[in-house]
Computed example of a mutant assay.
Amino acid sequence: MTAAADAQLQLIDRLEASGALTPDWRQAFLDVGRHLFLPDVFWASTGGGYERCDRAESPDRWMELAYSDVAIVTQWDGGADDGQREPTSSVSMPTMVASMLRDLDVRDGHRVWEGGTGPGWNAALLAYRQGAHNVVTVELDPAVAAQAAANFRALEAAPTAVVGDAADGYPPSAPYDRGILTCSVREVPAAVIGQIRLQGVLVLPFAPLFGGGAVARLTVSGTTAEGPFTGSSAFMRMRQQRYQAPPVDDYLPGDWPGDAAQEHTTLSPLDVVDDWLAAFVVGLALPDLYYRRSDGDGMTTLWLFDTAVTSWATVDFVDGASRFEVRQSGPRRVWSEVEDVVRWWEKEGRPGFERFGLTVDGGEHRAWLDEPANPLPSARG
């Protein structure tokens, strides 16, 4: 057995033992080696940042990382350089790939659409599982799509690969029994929902503007898609949905604090934004809020804004403090809204990702706890 095959088998066994990989997917993971979709130079997310690995310099480490349960970045900044400012293409961590394919629940003969080809590993797994003629994958970036096409040429079963906007789906091959996105969205594209068959399934990473993220498993009924979140996720956002925030001066003409009076809170702002689940809950309840932060020596200032550019707040975290200074301005008290959502979540027992769900109906997004009839606080008014 080669070193690659041995590393691949060990990874598959670990994925099966964890429950992420179901038995019906094992053969596809054996047939489609992850290392075949990785460039000679990549950056592995190893916890403390991104580790650059060059196959020519460190072939053993390169193969070790290829079959480690980590995400691997294959392009930075749209391919402009490797300045490592923002990842724009990657191969997802194997646990996430396996668990999302599990959630997809494909059956023999199902036609599958994928949005976000990337280097192509996920699409290739689908092609081997479903048959190449049943899989369509769409990639926006021509350079990334070209590399995926080159990767597919080495396979016995290659999906139909299209250069285009995943937000548009791919009408020529619709309808599909299943759909999967490999980039996160804060708004589920209506065109994609419209191309999934009645009672078909759409699996996607959903990431509110405020922060956090989770995989949603939505069942489609006409123009409506509804279903639970199945677990935490962290994906690059769909490029068309990356928010370009206006300058702070649009909210605060003149010097801080403007007309904002001093208040105090006992809720640490870092307990909100540094907790992936807490930030996700706030983002679900308050989808039009976002934040920036500035970190200093022993102090962090959190700036909160609404997308309508009407209201803002600041909260100052100081090491060792139990009360934190707040300033709020505008018709909304945006920090008070955040605090209300967090207190509600705590009162409910801090429910996890799997107890939340999402309904998308005609472009409107409604988040809920346990069932659609139990909307989150902001939806109750």
Score class of each variant (00 low, 15 high):
Arg237His: 07
Gly352Trp: 09
Thr265Asn: 15
Trp303Cys: 14
Arg102Ala: 15
Arg242Ile: 15
Glu226Asn: 11
Pro159Met: 02
Gly131Gln: 00
Ser18Glu: 10
Leu125Ile: 00
Gly200Ala: 05
Asp275Met: 07
Trp43Arg: 01
Gly222Gln: 04
Glu354Leu: 07
Thr95Ile: 13
Ser99His: 07
Tyr50Ser: 11
Gly118Leu: 06
Val192Pro: 01
Trp345Met: 06
Pro205Gly: 02
Ala261Leu: 10
Gly352Pro: 08
Ser92Pro: 08
Arg366Asp: 07
Glu346Asp: 10
Arg343Cys: 07
Arg197Ala: 15
Ala261Asp: 07
Ala158Leu: 05
Trp335Leu: 14
Gln199Glu: 10
Gln75Asp: 14
Leu11Glu: 02
Asp259His: 12
Ala132Asp: 01
Trp345Phe: 03
Gly357His: 01
Phe235Asp: 05
Trp121Asp: 07
Ala261His: 03
Glu86Tyr: 13
Ile180Asp: 04
Ala373Gly: 08
Gly19Gln: 00
Asp370Val: 05
Pro208Thr: 01
Ala132Met: 08
Val135Gln: 02
Val138Gln: 09
Ala56Ser: 09
Thr137Ile: 02
Val188Tyr: 09
Leu369Val: 03
Phe235Pro: 03
Val326Arg: 12
Asp288Ala: 14
Glu114Arg: 03
Ala71Glu: 10
Gly213Leu: 03
Ser90Arg: 06
Pro119Ile: 03
Leu104Ile: 02
Thr137Cys: 07
Asp165Phe: 04
Gly283Ser: 08
Val91Gly: 10
Asp361Thr: 10
Asp69Val: 09
Trp335His: 12
Leu101Gly: 07
Phe353Trp: 10
Ala379Gly: 03
Val318Leu: 12
Ala191Gly: 09
Leu65Gly: 08
Gly296Lys: 10
Phe324Met: 13
Pro246Asn: 02
Arg178Cys: 11
Asp255Met: 13
Asp295His: 15
Pro39Gly: 13
Asp6Asn: 12
Pro228Gln: 06
Gly200Pro: 01
Pro39Gln: 10
Ala150Asn: 11
Ala143Ser: 15
Gly254Thr: 00
